[in-house]
Simulated scan of single mutants.
Amino acid sequence: MTHFVLVAGARLGASAWDEVAAELRAAGHRPHPLTLSGLAEKRDVPAGQRTHVRDIVDLVERLDLRDVVLVGHSYAGVPVGQAAERLGDRLARVVFVDSEVPVDGESFLSGRPSDHIRREIADNDGFWPPAGADHYAGQGLTDEQIARIVDRSTPHPGATLTEPAVLTRPLGELPATYIKCLLDDEEPMPVVTELVASGHWELVEMDTGHWPMFSRPAELAGILAARGRTTPS
């Protein structure tokens, strides 16, 4: 049996993983969906990038989890990648789901056109506001699935997007799987391409959009479960 710590991307909390978590439980695993500080039911908790890394590490240590697979979607790949290298022998694998990955000294917004996001954060009291339904078009989602994402979204604390990541060793040393969702973009970002080409990371493709926990939860859960360990019968 494997413990899966599931962390959703910007604006979303633990409920984003409801269907994936149910599939993992049915497969004999223990999912631990995590809401990061400043989001969803923890909306009133102040948060920066360091806070989100601590959220993940604290959950694993508080529950004394072993054989942990950390799963980070979209933005959450940045704190998940940093947390993974802090877990030592508790970590079995880290899975990046169509996500950013941390680069030492760079933030989530580094290396991308970000002026509009920074303006939105400045105009909304330090928070990145939720996106409307149009943002999710063309991503393999039904209208009902889009409505659920919009309904579950909350403003995202801007400091977590602008503070730099801190890595203590090369990211490529982590046992990692990168899941690329092809409707979002057919090619992973250059840093991921380099890590996969080095032979240390595994690349898995999904023919769906950027939110596979909503569009293809059973398929995503199957990919995750295949990288876990089940209890012998």
Rank of each mutant, 00 (worst) to 15 (best):
1 M>D: 06
2 T>D: 00
3 H>N: 15
5 V>C: 09
5 V>A: 09
7 V>L: 08
8 A>K: 02
11 R>Y: 12
14 A>W: 01
15 S>F: 08
17 W>R: 06
20 V>W: 07
21 A>H: 03
22 A>W: 05
22 A>Q: 14
24 L>C: 08
24 L>G: 08
26 A>L: 13
31 P>K: 07
32 H>Y: 14
33 P>D: 06
36 L>A: 01
36 L>S: 02
37 S>M: 05
40 A>S: 14
41 E>R: 12
41 E>V: 08
42 K>L: 14
47 A>T: 07
51 T>F: 06
55 D>E: 09
59 L>M: 11
64 D>I: 11
65 L>W: 08
66 R>P: 00
67 D>F: 02
68 V>S: 03
69 V>P: 02
69 V>Q: 02
75 Y>W: 15
85 E>S: 04
85 E>C: 04
87 L>P: 02
89 D>L: 05
91 L>R: 02
94 V>I: 13
96 F>K: 01
101 V>R: 03
102 P>T: 11
103 V>D: 04
108 F>C: 11
109 L>H: 04
109 L>A: 08
112 R>S: 10
118 R>M: 11
118 R>E: 14
122 A>L: 11
122 A>Q: 11
123 D>Y: 02
125 D>H: 13
125 D>F: 11
126 G>W: 07
132 G>D: 15
133 A>M: 10
133 A>N: 04
134 D>K: 12
136 Y>V: 01
138 G>W: 14
138 G>C: 12
140 G>T: 04
150 V>N: 07
150 V>W: 11
151 D>E: 15
152 R>G: 03
154 T>E: 09
154 T>V: 15
156 H>C: 05
156 H>S: 04
156 H>W: 03
156 H>E: 10
159 A>C: 05
162 T>F: 02
162 T>Y: 03
163 E>D: 15
164 P>W: 11
166 V>Y: 08
167 L>F: 07
172 G>C: 03
176 A>T: 14
178 Y>W: 11
179 I>Q: 02
180 K>H: 12
185 D>L: 11
185 D>I: 09
185 D>Q: 14
189 M>F: 12
191 V>T: 13
192 V>K: 01
192 V>W: 08
194 E>N: 10
195 L>Y: 06
196 V>T: 12
197 A>R: 14
198 S>R: 13
202 E>I: 11
203 L>V: 10
204 V>L: 13
209 G>R: 03
212 P>H: 07
213 M>K: 00
213 M>S: 02
214 F>M: 08
215 S>A: 15
219 E>M: 05
222 G>A: 13
224 L>K: 01
231 T>F: 00
